[in-house]
């Protein structure tokens, strides 16, 4: 767990594109179009130790997938440096591909019309494994991923959950040291999600595979990753152990007030307390404990509302993450 698998230093990616200028004529637009530039990833740096499980999260358009694509050598950085297992992805893309596995949740790498075994054999040959190694690895993965019941079925006939297991299995054919997953649980039901997470934890434990995943699913982050990097507007805004993430907004407490009868009015709240939800049967407020204690807040709230039930709790991880995104957006 000591050496770094991934080192990212001052990485930047800019996309430039031609944009039509309404005030210019069509000839000017055709031959001298206006160039616009988007900074997708802006000067980010981080490193990942061997065997770590990293969640790389951020809102849509934050730069997550762009970063993953630069890590795998698919996209060329505008500036900065990436080193994966001592290799430069832009120069050693093929060499690096032998060391890493990739799963792009929204794209399939399997052969749709043929049984899954054919896809696995195909990848084995692609990764230059001997026939014996291929058959041995297929047996291992079949057992590990419980593929036995559908390994002989054409891939297009698999359910989404089965297909995603198969996708991950295929990406592990060559025993990669790092697996990069771009939204692997997208579209899966809760059972399939849990099953996939358990499998990833298992391969991390048994094969010491470094896991680097992007996801919008808080469950993936909570149950799978020991460290979370949050990116927004192309900039890393948080990089901390996942268990510390929930503590980020520990100064905020949530209080649910369930109405005895319907709430008719929503009076102005004192400093340190603000509404999060205003409904006739339920009100949720956020208390900033730096400004006002929970006890004082409760006293005030109970004097303002006739309640049947009260619930005090800290923010869940999803709320924390949302809060981080929102705070960062306001800051920008």
């Amino acid at each position: 767990m000591e050496s770094n698998s991934i080192i990212v230093s001052r990485l930047t990616k800019k996309f430039s594109f031609s944009a039509k200028n309404a005030s210019s004529g069509w000839i000017k637009n055709l031959f001298f179009p206006e160039k616009k530039e988007i900074v997708a990833v802006n000067d980010i740096s981080f490193s990942v130790k061997h065997g770590e499980r990293i969640a790389f999260i951020g809102p849509n358009g934050a730069g997550k997938s762009t970063t993953i694509k630069m890590l795998t050598g698919i996209l060329f950085p505008t500036s900065g440096m990436v080193t994966i297992l001592g290799l430069d992805p832009t120069k050693d893309r093929k060499k690096l591909a032998y060391q890493i596995g990739t799963v792009f949740g929204q794209r399939s790498q399997l052969l749709p019309n043929l049984p899954l075994t054919d896809s696995l054999e195909f990848f084995g040959v692609m990764y230059d494994m001997s026939d014996e190694e291929i058959q041995k690895r297929i047996r291992e993965l079949t057992e590990l991923f419980d593929l036995g019941s559908y390994i002989s079925q054409p891939v297009r006939k698999l359910s989404l959950g089965q297909r995603m297991r198969a996708e991950v299995a295929a990406s592990l054919m060559h025993k990669p040291k790092i697996i990069l997953l771009d939204e692997p649980t997208i579209g899966l039901d809760v059972v399939a999600k849990k099953s996939l997470r358990d499998l990833l934890l298992k391969i991390n434990r048994e094969e010491q595979t470094t896991i680097f995943l992007t996801s919008h699913d808080v469950g993936d982050i909570e149950s799978l990753c020991d460290r979370t990097i949050i990116i927004n507007h192309g900039i890393v805004i948080k990089d901390l152990p996942t268990q510390d993430l929930a503590k980020t907004f520990v100064y905020e407490k949530y209080i649910d007030l369930v109405a005895q009868n319907n709430f008719e009015v929503f009076p102005k709240l004192p400093n340190g307390i603000r509404y999060s939800l205003q409904e006739k049967n339920k009100v949720t407020v956020v208390v900033d404990v730096n400004q006002i204690s929970v006890q004082d807040s409760l006293k005030i709230l109970l004097s303002l509302f006739e309640v049947e039930d009260v619930n005090v709790y800290s923010a869940d991880l999803e709320t924390v993450i949302r809060h981080i995104y929102e705070t960062d957006s306001i800051g920008n």
């Binding site: 694509k69 698919i74 893309r93 591909a97 032998y98 792009f104 794209r107 692609m126 990764y127």
Partner: peptide, 14 residues
């Protein structure tokens, strides 16, 4: 157009 190129670019093939 579909972005499938990224799947193939991440493999050890030409």
């Amino acid at each position: 157009q579909t972005g499938n190129v990224e799947v193939l670019f991440s493999k050890p093939i030409s």
